[in-house]
């Protein structure tokens, strides 16, 4: 089944004194498969949050339709199967972690015992068991983000919508969130998360959708998006003799020497073969050979630049 589907979804906001129309989202057609981690990426203001807010019923689309797990989003009952973490940790800071989760459990009409069992499980998952009786106002940003994820999971949702789950966190906090996301995928959940921290997206996502200026410009697996774009290959060798450098330089200028090792970048399969032959002939040792694909970041910057040119 398709977890999230949108058809021609658009949103216009009226802003300022003149009520000028600003298009935040334009004709979005998105499909997220069940069981995958889908990265929703784009620069600030691209419409990522707008999309998630429409899906959760916080704002209404100007036109278009959307379905979650096959049901129209206008049906409040679909929210039983959704977990949502909004951007930036803003929560009821006068509540303790326990009271906080209890409150959300009640909103699903869960029974006391049911909530308490789930609460223990979730506090363990996000590693906040030891602070369950402390008010949220004393939580760090990372802890708030984690309790936010726990809140999104209280109903054991099939679909998780996470808005910038890793922004503003330190590396340890981010690693923890990534670990949780991967764990959730293993549990069979579908995860749609927005981010502009691209390295995180690269590591986690099965597929990504790229949103710029309210329009979805690309959707696909990272490999299909990034590899055809790139033709650089990275070769690392050692034990090479000095004179071979000159020989390789006739093929490529991109050579870096560090200690014993030599890093060579070539731009085509043909040149790769030529360099490898030279290495073999000179009894050099091949350490690694990496078909360098473009990073998501390079890809996105390129896209955006092209977008500006349009």
């Amino acid at each position: 089944m398709i977890a999230v589907k949108t058809q021609g979804l658009s949103k216009e906001f009226r802003t300022g004194f003149t009520m000028k129309k600003v298009s935040a989202l334009h004709n979005l057609n998105l499909e997220v498969e069940e069981g995958e981690i889908f990265g929703y990426i784009g620069p600030n203001g691209a419409g990522k949050t707008t999309t998630l807010k429409i899906l959760t019923g916080l704002i209404y689309p100007t036109s278009g339709n959307a379905w979650i797990l096959g049901r129209d989003i206008r049906d409040v009952a679909i929210k039983k199967d959704i977990g949502f973490l909004p951007e930036g940790p803003y929560f009821y800071d006068y509540l303790t972690a326990k009271e906080f989760l209890y409150f959300y459990g009640q909103l699903f009409g869960m029974r006391k015992r049911e909530i308490e069992e789930k609460m223990d499980e979730l506090l363990n998952l996000v590693g906040l068991r030891h602070v369950k009786d402390i008010q949220l106002r004393r939580f760090s940003k990372g802890m708030l983000q984690r309790i936010g994820i726990a809140q999104a999971l209280i109903n054991d949702p099939k679909l998780l919508l996470l808005d910038e789950p890793m922004s503003g966190l330190d590396p340890i906090g981010r690693a923890k969130i990534k670990e949780i996301i991967l764990q959730l995928k293993e549990d069979g959940k579908t995860i749609l998360f927005s981010s502009h921290i691209l390295s995180d997206v690269e590591m986690l996502c099965d597929r990504v959708g790229i949103l710029t200026n309210g329009k979805l410009t690309d959707v696909g697996s990272l490999d299909s998006l990034l590899i055809p774009e790139v033709k650089s290959i990275e070769i690392v060798t050692s034990h090479m003799e000095e004179n071979t450098i000159e020989e390789i330089k006739t093929i490529t200028e991109k050579i870096t020497l560090r200690d014993e090792k030599m890093l060579i970048m070539v731009d085509s399969e043909e040149n790769k073969e030529r360099v490898l032959r030279i290495i073999n002939r000179n009894n050099g040792r091949l350490i690694s050979l990496t078909p360098g694909r473009k990073t998501l970041e390079e890809y996105l910057v390129e896209k955006l630049n092209r977008g500006v040119a349009l």
Partner: peptide
């Protein structure tokens, strides 16, 4: 203002 409503409205609450 504090966006606490986001999490509540995203639950099955009218």
């Amino acid at each position: 203002d504090k966006k606490t409503i986001y999490t509540v409205i995203a639950k099955p609450v009218h």
